[in-house]
Amino acid sequence: MPIDVKGVSFSYNTGTTLEKVALENINLSIGKGEFILIGGEIGSGKSTLIRHFNGLLKPSTGQVIVDGMPAHEKHVKTKVGILFQFPQNQLFAKTVYEDVAFGPSNFGIKGKQLDKRVIHALQLAGVREELYDRSPFTLSGGEMRLVAIAGVLAMQPDYLLLDEPLSGLDPENKNSLLLLLKTLHSQGISVVIVSHRIADMLFLADRVFLMQDGRVSFKGKPDDYIYSTSSPLPDITSLMKDLRQKGIDVRDDVFSIEDAFDEITRVQKERMVR
């Protein structure tokens, strides 16, 4: 069953001179097991939109239905996990372990089962074991972020939403986070990444939504996204385009480094045969 967003509009500060329409008649659906990218410039309403998916914000008009339930029901928060921007700011507990246990214990999970979940989440997120009993505030920024991710994973959500998850990460950490998301997705979890720069993640996505001024201006497959919008190309795609212009006969419709590698080796082999 999906997350269904039906005719949702939302305004901040209604009834004052500061009123701001942030979402206007949004209609979309996110299926179980999908990998979705939500793009759009800063201020286009992405963060406002995902706050509707677990009921943090209630639509001014329209409705959000998660697996058949209205999104503001408490139980929905166990299904839809959100990792917010700068998640390292949310840590508060005495130890890393306790912080990760916060989510599931709020839903009444106790004892052995809680322990299993916490350890599993910490391992998935790649937090080193010797950090489990440390205070989260003594960790490095990168480690704190992993703990925050574990905190959301411990809720074992069916839908995992991440708001600008790559901002402030170095390339190596970016890759390991994307790899983790890929793994989670292969285990059947729906992954939704929100970012103002989605080009380099296109190869992961099943579908793409583009937000513009509070509306959805594009819905569709990554390929269509590249050809039907004027958005920037992924770095690897521009590289292939450059190669083509230099007279090397490679395809330029590849979005991932693996595909590019295969394509270049294929062309190279062909040349050797000739």
Binding site: K77, Q90, N106
Partner: peptide
């Protein structure tokens, strides 16, 4: 933003005021 993050992890300010104050 912090409240959003903790509420997404199941914090219920109405039911557990102490936890709310502490985690915020």
């Amino acid at each position: 933003h912090l409240k959003d993050a903790q509420m997404s992890r199941g914090l219920d300010p109405g039911r557990s005021p102490f936890k709310t104050v502490y985690s915020l």
